[in-house]
């Protein structure tokens, strides 16, 4: 049938693709090497003809893009934080450790991270989409079919990360397609190809997960204890992300939910209670007529 939450090894088979489907592709974004240049934002818009959406100085450090949305499929977040809460002593000469997260003199930390659709194993947007516009591709990615979407907006309320949105003057929902058209031609997604420091890494999800584990170990060994992976664990609330991250602080500091869960996980309970309520209404109906004549 198909699983609704928890670990799932073969998302494509679960979505009805036969065994010779390609491996599941995804992104691993290592924010410890991100230099906040926003090449990913421009490369994505240039390839997908995504319209520009607003010229507003926000004062949120160097982030004037503000958030992911229908006309922003890549969003680089900037967080300026005092280096003090690094979980590491900052007084005295720093060990020769890789301090990529901190400026050596305990002044300031400037976190940068390129946010993107997570292409979840269990995707809330995909599950709730009534028209089948959102679907699982043969590459295991989650894509909106613009020729099908009728703009009902249900996906917007079902994404635990707040990624997908309706485009105001168009009415339809849009989000990162992991360059589905480029994948069909064996090409690398535009953002991953442009990223100057390979903070955005594209590849087979399994191999990316191994690479991420190695990078995490490498950073911990260098004393960067704040490093953690986010969305790598197949047992998390969305069954693990197709696009996961190495962060240098708590997820909510970057505007990411600390424990995202796909709504479908509680759908069973939802339908059960709807059933009870329906039965109650039916009961009420019968009761209403079984009483005295008047």
């Amino acid at each position: 049938m198909g699983s609704l939450w928890g670990g799932l090894d073969d998302v494509q088979a679960d979505a009805g693709y036969d065994a010779d489907h390609p491996p599941r592709m995804g992104f691993f974004t290592d924010t410890s090497v991100c230099i906040g240049c926003k090449a990913c934002e421009v490369a994505c818009k240039e390839w997908n003809d995504v319209p520009d959406d607003g010229y507003l100085l926000t004062g949120m450090s160097y982030d004037n893009t503000q958030e992911l949305g229908a006309s922003t499929w890549r969003h680089v977040a900037f967080v300026e934080k005092p280096a003090v809460d690094l979980g590491m002593p900052t007084v005295g000469p720093p060990r020769d450790a890789d301090q990529s997260a901190a400026s050596g003199d305990a002044g300031i930390r400037w976190l940068m991270s390129s946010d993107v659709c997570k292409h979840c194993t269990h995707a809330g947007c995909l599950d709730v989409c009534p028209t089948g516009a959102l679907f699982r591709t043969e590459f295991g990615t989650v894509v909106v079919q613009p020729d099908v979407c009728n703009g009902c907006g249900y996906c917007v309320s079902a994404c635990p990360y707040g990624v997908i949105d309706l485009r105001k003057d168009d009415g339809r929902a849009f989000k990162c397609t992991l360059c589905y058209d480029r994948l069909k031609d064996g090409q690398t997604p535009a953002c991953a190809q442009a990223c100057p420091t390979e903070s955005i890494q594209f590849g087979e999800l399994d191999e990316l997960r191994e690479r991420a584990d190695r990078r995490l170990a490498e950073l911990h060994e260098r004393g960067v204890d704040v490093a953690r992976l986010y969305g790598r664990d197949p047992e998390d609330g969305v069954g693990g992300d197709g696009a996961f991250f190495l962060l240098l602080d708590e997820p909510e500091v970057y505007g990411l939910p600390p424990d995202p869960v796909v709504p479908t996980r509680t759908l069973g309970s939802v339908w059960k209670h709807v059933g009870y309520a329906a039965a109650a209404v039916a009961g009420l109906g019968v009761a209403a007529f079984s009483g005295r004549r008047r």
Binding site: S157, C159, Y161, G162, L166, E252, G255
Partner: peptide, 11 residues
């Protein structure tokens, strides 16, 4: 993240 919402407001 600067007090901004995490999930999108329903459309």
């Amino acid at each position: 993240y600067y007090g901004r919402q995490i999930i999108k407001t329903p459309t």
